[in-house]
Simulated assay, not measured.
Amino acid sequence: MPRKSDSKGCPLCGSPSSAEHGPFCSRGCKDRDLLKWLGEGYRIPGPAAPPDPEQSSG
Rank of each mutant, 00 (worst) to 15 (best):
Met1Leu: 08
Met1Ile: 02
Pro2Arg: 06
Pro2Leu: 06
Arg3Gly: 01
Arg3His: 02
Arg3Phe: 02
Lys4Arg: 12
Lys4Thr: 07
Lys4Ser: 08
Lys4Trp: 05
Asp6Phe: 00
Asp6His: 05
Lys8Glu: 12
Lys8Cys: 00
Gly9Asp: 08
Cys10Gln: 12
Cys10Tyr: 08
Cys13His: 05
Cys13Asp: 11
Cys13Gly: 09
Gly14Cys: 10
Ser15Asp: 10
Pro16Tyr: 01
Pro16Gln: 09
Ser17Met: 10
Ser17Ile: 00
Ser18Asn: 10
Ser18Thr: 04
Ser18Pro: 04
Ser18Phe: 01
Ser18Val: 04
Ala19Asn: 09
Ala19Gln: 14
Glu20Ser: 14
His21Gly: 01
Gly22Met: 02
Pro23Thr: 05
Pro23Leu: 02
Phe24Asn: 03
Cys25Tyr: 06
Cys25Phe: 01
Cys25Leu: 07
Cys25Pro: 04
Cys25Asp: 01
Ser26His: 04
Ser26Leu: 00
Ser26Val: 06
Ser26Thr: 14
Arg27Val: 07
Gly28Ser: 13
Cys29Arg: 03
Lys30Asp: 04
Asp33Phe: 13
Asp33Lys: 05
Asp33Arg: 02
Leu34Trp: 05
Leu34Tyr: 06
Lys36Ala: 13
Lys36Met: 14
Lys36Pro: 00
Trp37Tyr: 13
Trp37Leu: 09
Trp37Glu: 07
Trp37Gly: 03
Gly39Glu: 07
Gly39Gln: 14
Glu40Ile: 01
Glu40Ser: 14
Gly41Asp: 11
Tyr42Ser: 06
Tyr42Lys: 05
Arg43Ala: 09
Arg43Cys: 10
Ile44Cys: 03
Pro45Arg: 07
Gly46Ile: 02
Pro47Ile: 06
Pro47Leu: 06
Ala48Gly: 11
Ala48Asn: 13
Ala49Ile: 03
Ala49His: 01
Pro50Trp: 04
Pro51Ile: 11
Pro51His: 10
Pro51Lys: 12
Pro51Met: 09
Pro53Met: 10
Pro53Gln: 12
Glu54Gly: 14
Glu54Pro: 00
Glu54Arg: 15
Glu54Met: 11
Gln55Val: 15
Ser57Phe: 11
Ser57Cys: 10
Ser57Glu: 13
Gly58Ser: 15
